[in-house]
């Protein structure tokens, strides 16, 4: 008697998908709803107030956020290139691209913490104004996602890479799933950036 779970790696013929692919997309669907609620809260509080400040009123730096956007977009590209390299069985390039992806995450977090400390040094805290409350909560939750994605990516770059030797297909699937999450984190930032900094 065996307890092998089918379709962990190979695709189920009638759905054309493996379990992990469905699982990660379902998780992303719930993430859509999470950020939907956060943005919904933003909208309700914004339209419910008589005047709403602009990001620059609290010294939000557009250049820093602009650089951060580019950093995150670039790391999304390196992520997808890491996956493409694995598909070509080019593990050297995979490692380079994955390293760049993790580096991008680190860069994003460094810039983010520079921004945070600039706010704190001006005594702008979450309780100062609801704009800042939203700013810190939304970017904070997003930063948590960035950290989570970095941990997964770093795992796949170093200790988790040994799976490539035993089960390359499953390893490639894992990189693809981690990539889907990482792109989603990028996607959220694409909306956060204009909403908090520009509009």
């Amino acid at each position: 008697m065996s307890s092998v779970i089918p379709y962990t790696v190979e695709k189920r013929p009638d759905t054309g998908l493996n379990n992990v692919k469905i699982g990660i997309w379902l998780f992303l669907a719930s993430e859509v709803m999470l950020f939907g609620a956060l943005f919904g809260g933003y909208i309700l509080l914004r339209v419910g107030s008589t005047e709403w400040p602009h990001g620059s009123d609290f010294g939000l730096s557009v250049p820093l956020a602009f650089v951060n956007t580019l950093v995150l977009i670039s790391s999304s590209v390196t992520m997808v290139m890491a996956w493409a390299s694995l598909m070509r069985k080019d593990t050297r390039k995979y490692k380079i691209y994955m390293f760049l992806t993790v580096l991008g995450g680190v860069g994003f977090m460094v810039i983010k913490s520079i921004e945070y400390s600039a706010k704190f040094s001006h005594h702008y805290y979450p309780e100062t104004h609801n704009f800042l409350a939203l700013y810190f909560t939304l970017t904070g939750l997003h930063a948590l996602h960035v950290v989570a994605g970095m941990v997964v990516n770093a795992y796949l770059l170093w200790p988790g890479f040994k799976m490539w030797e035993t089960n390359p297909q499953q390893f490639t699937n894992r990189v693809e799933s981690a990539g889907l999450f990482w792109h989603f984190v990028d996607l959220v930032w694409i909306f956060l950036f204009p909403v908090l900094y520009l509009l």
Binding site: L26, S30, Y125, P126, A133, T137
Partner: peptide, 25 residues
């Protein structure tokens, strides 16, 4: 469960911020 729980997650986060960080959501 998948699609309805996240809004409460968001609301819970807001309320935690209100209680712990002094925000006014």
């Amino acid at each position: 469960l998948l699609l309805a729980f996240p809004p409460l997650q968001a609301a819970g986060t807001f309320q935690l911020m209100d209680r712990l960080a002094g925000t006014s959501f």
